[in-house]
Design a protein around this nucleic acid. Structure first.
Lengths: 336, 336
DNA sequence: CTGAAAGCGCTTACAG
DNA sequence: CTGAAAGCGCTTACAG
């Protein structure tokens, strides 16, 4: 008959009764913990499979004093670039989490306001926390350290007690810059984002490192930080071009997009008159003319590893290996 | 003493014992359900406040057969525009949810793949679902209708059985277009996004409505749909300008940004030689030169209302009123 | 107005 | 190898 009765939801008790065993036994068959006869286990497992039984995660959680939830903290005021990056992280996090049957609870953090974190803690609905942004205010970080929940940070940390996962921003910045210097450019300009972000600081440092290592002086007049809108970028581009820059390193895609369109507007040819490169390779740059050289970070992977790291702390045994994160340099026409 | 012992976590039993009442009584004082003496209630409440007791939401949930979780479905492949809009929705959703002490569990949906939804359902960790994108594939929608969980849709629906919340996209498209027509433009171009999205279809329809109502013919040669990258936009701009367009309606901000930079590049003056307007007012347009006229939707509000609607279905009594969503037209220099 | 008891659906010592 | 029992921290008829 196709018209089956309303699919009933089995409990562990139902199964025990129908199979004539104790629920202890059923529980053991499912969890794999404790001794149990081969035959019994198979019988239970077969029944479970046939009736598509899924244990109630909440009940299990209560008994085990776990929730199988992980909180993901997310700043309320994310801007475009960060958010695109974050989205990929989230993909990675969710993927790993669901493999271990954890769910992700999202919590929007408003600047310095820790009330949402307190709420999470008070409600005891999560086993751990992933903090998504390095820029999380020091107040938030401080609170997290004091609070009961284990957490991992996506982004850099100099506190050895805080588990974190980060892109190699400084190394990447250095490598990209080195490549441009080795291609012969001697007057590199830098267009950077918000300096209160760690990522900005790291990439900037990488830019400096490359110069120092090759013994090439940095021209302070070509450094423009905190450029975050079309107008400011446009002005910066005029200035740097007038000042004789032969290459531009953009700290992220959005800045680079604005930079490229500004160059087009001013009829400055790339790469003929000036070269350009960016530090985060999103789809934004894909269709640019000319295609832009850039560093490609693997945000999905970053998310996966952050989640894996937290799961380890929570006592799970994730198979995924935590190998150092890497980046690629994608050389395109804009630096030829 | 400042150094208090490890903050212990009280349970309802502890409180009952310390106060010499039954836990039934404590429970009643907290929930407000059932009769309870004024004096007793106050005594309990005072104790709770003093010791900062917070009931265990998971345990309560188990007893009430609720989870106090809401799932938010989110497509894995969101692109920039949608995602920015979605972020605001999320803010609204989270805000309302946390007021009622619900949490938001995020679930990434990969196209037609319903396995994550099945997982949500099987795990019974949510009381309801908010589907974030109108474009959710028909397969996903179909599955949701059959599944046990109540859900609301953000976006349009013609199925009267599906609760949904939507922007007035068609009306907004019509109004923006009407304004441009009434300003005297007679050859309006349209730059639209992905036609498989309902929002695109609705805004397009609004564009047509305005023309019909005013008895002004639509020039098919000025309609460019599915433009989603700089190159394509740039070509479209060339064509429409050559074809004599006197105004451009962009369906979203990202398209509009690309359109504006393309116009700048081609040295076509806005608003002198051609006017332009957009349909979603994000920060993207804020710094454009000239500032761009646009429709402003309230995504945060949209999220709030979606969540409110779901909470109603779940039997809560949200105070927030569900009034029809509105939009603003922000007239700026680009259409003067 | 208040409480003892059963129950939500699991897990886990403990005993056999 | 298996099970009875207690427990996770709440709620809620039911009885008084």
């Amino acid at each position: 008959m196709m018209t089956e009765e309303e699919k009933r939801i089995y409990t562990i008790d139902d199964i025990a009764r129908e199979l004539g065993v104790s629920k202890t036994t059923v529980s053991r068959a499912i969890s794999g913990k404790g001794r149990i006869g081969q035959a019994t286990r198979e019988r239970v497992l077969a029944f479970i499979k046939e009736h598509d039984y899924r244990p109630n995660v909440v009940a299990r959680g209560l008994a085990q004093r776990k929730t199988y939830n992980i909180a993901l903290l997310m700043p309320k005021d994310y801007v475009a670039t960060e958010f695109l990056f974050f989205k990929d992280c989230m993909n990675g996090i969710c993927e790993v989490a669901s493999e271990y049957n954890y769910d992700i609870i999202i919590s929007m953090i408003d600047g310095e306001d820790i009330s949402q974190i307190q709420r999470l803690e008070a409600n005891r609905k999560v086993d751990g926390i992933i903090v998504s942004r390095a820029v999380v205010s020091s107040k938030v970080q401080k609170y997290l350290k004091e609070c009961r929940e284990p957490f991992v940070l996506i982004g850099p940390s100099d506190d050895p007690n805080i588990p974190f996962i980060d892109n190699k921003n400084q190394e990447a910045g250095k490598e990209l810059t080195s490549i441009m210097l080795m291609k012969g450019m001697r007057h590199l300009a830098l267009l950077g984002g918000n300096q209160s972000y760690n990522v900005t600081v790291s990439r900037y440092q990488g830019f400096l490192d490359a110069h120092h290592e090759l013994g090439i002086p940095v021209d302070e007049n070509l450094i423009f930080m905190n450029v975050d809108n079309q107008l400011v970028v446009s002005e910066a581009v005029s200035k740097l071009y007038a000042a004789g820059a032969d290459g531009i390193v953009c700290m992220d895609d959005v800045i680079c997009s604005m930079c490229m369109s500004s160059l087009r507007e001013k009829k400055i040819q790339v790469p003929a008159q000036i070269k350009a490169a960016s530090m985060y390779d999103s789809k934004n740059l894909e269709y640019h003319n000319p295609p832009v050289t850039s560093i490609k970070f693997d945000a999905v992977r970053l998310g996966k590893m952050a989640c894996t790291k937290l799961l380890k702390i929570l006592g799970e045994n994730p198979q995924e290996e935590i190998t150092p994160l890497n980046y690629q340099v994608v050389l395109r026409e804009s630096t030829q």
